[in-house]
Amino acid sequence: MARGVMLMSGGIDSPVALHYLLRQGHEMVAVHMDNRPFTDDSPLAKTVDHLAMLRERYHQPIPMYLLPHGPTQINLMRSTDRHFGCVLCRRFMWRSAEKVASRENASFLATGEALGQVASQTLSNMRTATAAVGLPIVRPLIGFDKNEIEAVAKSIGTYEISTRPGVCCQAVPDRPATRSNLVQILHEEERIDVDQMIDDCIRKAVIL
């Protein structure tokens, strides 16, 4: 089985996706992008609790990298077209996860994305976002609908954690792009120092 890096948000989907990968026997490392001050403490607390539950269920250590994402969001909001905020944000998450994968000798990345659930999860945006990285990306829930995902979350005990009160991401633009192309996105990224932002993020990683 392979070693992979899972992006964990604290929401309903990512622990379910992780559950499927652990069930198949993959050795997983978790990455949580800490979006404060654009959220509250709840996504981090939920992620910690999700991992505690899944570690116990699958008897795996599942190290968790906590990476600061708030400073990246501030840079994006100050310097790039808000319309593409979600895609740009996702590209930084992928890049950060890939850096962790390199450090952890992991060979794939994974998320709980399912098609069409939120603005960043259109095919067009997924393609643009994932063009930021080279590792293969596994999406165990890609064809699931919300009801199916919630049913699994309830059956494995993560649903109640995911649905605790919390503040939604305040960095989401009023009208996020549902379509994007790489030329547009690369043009936006010329306005920021991508490598420096990723280096800063990784340098401040905390492993839990």
């Binding site: 001050p37 654009f38 501030i74 909001m77 100050r78 503040v167 305040q170 009023d174």
Partner: peptide, 24 residues
């Protein structure tokens, strides 16, 4: 904290102030 399109203010509870006038 100035994120250009919104401000995040430490006021006891943290408050997000959006350009459109919403306070969270």
């Amino acid at each position: 904290v100035d994120a250009r399109v919104l401000l995040i203010v430490s006021l006891g509870p943290e408050v997000t102030i959006s350009r459109a006038g919403r306070l969270l």
